[in-house]
């Protein structure tokens, strides 16, 4: 045990005294599972995410490739996670792309783990579907596919469905800043364009 650790813990114990009162935590807020998960939740998600200036598209699963092609047009360098679903367009799979190669991508298409209706948030969990973190960060345009069945009503619903095993990125709209006069301005270091395709 380092001395710094021992010292700090001793100071903490000294500060708290022999029998600190440990309060109970009242969890009377809306816990996971409180809210109904119906079609209205998907509508709400589409509404909240579009308020962040993300572009929202809603399609049947069979129409996904057409929609993605329509969003991206032709001739772009499009990255996807390795082994990603067939989009019917030429893609560059991320099998350990270098930083320079990531930087050359015009756009990236990935899936997502789930989405939160209440806050318009997409949850990316590092792995086969969402890709690794750099893939959805370096390219300037992110097309994110969200299964309608993965939309949960609230933040507690999402936290209950997630765990610490892989890195998680919560995305609520394109990159933005509030640093100029406390007003939200879109487009800083993250992807400046975010298309959200809700399917199924």
């Amino acid at each position: 045990m380092s001395t710094a650790k021992a010292d700090i813990l001793a100071r903490v114990r000294g500060a708290l005294g022999p029998s600190p009162v440990v309060p109970e935590i009242p969890r009377t807020y809306r816990l996971a599972g409180t809210l109904v998960r119906d079609a209205a939740v998907v509508d709400l998600f589409c509404e909240t995410v579009s308020e962040y200036k993300a572009t929202v598209h809603r399609v049947a699963e069979s129409a996904l490739p057409d929609k993605v092609r329509a969003i991206l047009g032709e001739g772009l360098r499009v990255g996807v996670p390795a082994g990603f679903r067939d989009l019917g367009l030429p893609v560059i799979e991320d099998r350990g792309l270098s930083v320079a190669e990531l930087d050359e991508l015009d756009a990236v298409v990935t899936g997502s783990a789930l989405a939160i209706a209440d806050t318009g948030t997409i949850v990316l969990v590092s792995g086969e579907n969402s890709g690794r973190r750099a893939l959805t960060l370096v390219p300037d345009h992110h097309v994110c596919l969200v299964a309608a069945s993965s939309v949960v009503p609230s933040v507690p619903d999402a936290i209950a469905a997630l765990g610490p095993d892989a890195p998680i990125t919560l995305v609520s709209g394109p990159s933005a800043t509030s640093d100029i006069e406390l007003d939200r301005v879109e487009g800083v270091h993250g992807p400046r364009r975010l298309d959200v395709v809700v399917f199924g």
Partner: peptide, 16 residues
């Protein structure tokens, strides 16, 4: 309602 990005990570993730 939510800030644009929240990152959560646990230790080191090989390859990411």
């Amino acid at each position: 309602r939510m800030n644009p990005y929240t990152s959560l990570w646990t230790g080191v993730r090989p390859g990411d």
